[in-house]
Nucleic acid binder design. Structure first.
Lengths: 152, 152
DNA sequence: GTCAGTGCAAACCCTTTGCAGAAAG
DNA sequence: CTTTCTGCAAAGGGTTTGCACTGAC
């Protein structure tokens, strides 16, 4: 995923990039439809955290391109294939994180803002043994923070 | 909160215990109504993780005692007052943890089961600096696990 | 042409809300 | 008596579903 925001400015490059994305999707066993490519384009423009709603809004910024159902289907599919990471910190909505390298999060409970903590900024020692018959499906470390001036 | 499950068997003790709970609630600035005491009784019988739904079912096990709205109001109030900890691991519902000592969680994504990890079983080093203008509101560490035989 | 993917709207489910009645002090 | 709390039922809001249509290959 070497696609960058700057590429969007030139059409020929955009087409090339779409082809790149298409082959990336094929590589993980995803049929690259128009909608999926467009959603991937938005998500992988840079490492970011987006809700389904935000993806929907961006995809349809210049006229309707994908429906709500397709957004949810695609995000779920991408998550299952490991292209994005679901971040569950806010009971009201799921965030999709296009940064799939190991890292942690600050979550501002006042603003709903989610920001990254590089993996090596935090070290986990004495890792607990997993319960018998289970295997790891990921570790989430969330630092919940509050804006210092916020009312309680 | 020294209330234990065994106490429920004797009525006189139950009454005493209700008074205990009432004063505990007053201590943190909560008016001890019938419903709140009953909810507290259930939650603090032992350290446990319950969804609003589960609390509702238990409270009303022997006839209706509290409504859904009251359950949500009370759980939210208890959380604000620090009597329970909200655990956000499942996008579909919030868990309320009556163990407020520092600890972490296993979350089995297949079964929805939530289990404790004692704080000292895991050590966090190199803690990141909080973003300027913010203060901590808690740290959540969740080990997501899968039952080893589960289909993917 | 076939099968997978998409769109639409309705259904779902947990949670919140508005407001009248009940309880706490 | 006053203020806070509770109950009911309806509304809210993110997510899922059912099914006919469309697009990928």
């Amino acid at each position: 995923m070497t696609y960058t925001h700057a590429m969007e400015t030139r059409n020929t490059l955009k087409i090339d990039t779409d082809q790149d994305i298409a082959s990336q999707l094929r590589k993980v066993g995803i049929t690259p439809t128009q909608q999926r490519v467009q959603i991937a384009e938005i998500l992988f423009a840079r490492p970011q955290h987006m809700s389904a709603d935000q993806v929907l809004a961006l995809v349809n910024r210049d006229g309707p391109t994908a429906s709500k159902a397709t957004i949810y289907n695609t995000l779920g599919l991408f998550a299952r294939k490991g292209l994005v990471r679901e971040v569950i910190v806010d009971p009201s909505k799921v965030f999709y994180d296009s940064n799939t390298t190991i890292h942690h999060h600050f979550f501002n409970v006042d603003t709903g803002e989610l920001t990254d903590i590089p993996a090596d900024d935090l070290i986990l020692n004495n890792m607990p043994e997993l319960p018998p018959g289970t295997e790891s499906a990921g570790i989430d470390v969330i630092f919940r923070i509050r804006s210092r001036d916020a009312r309680h």
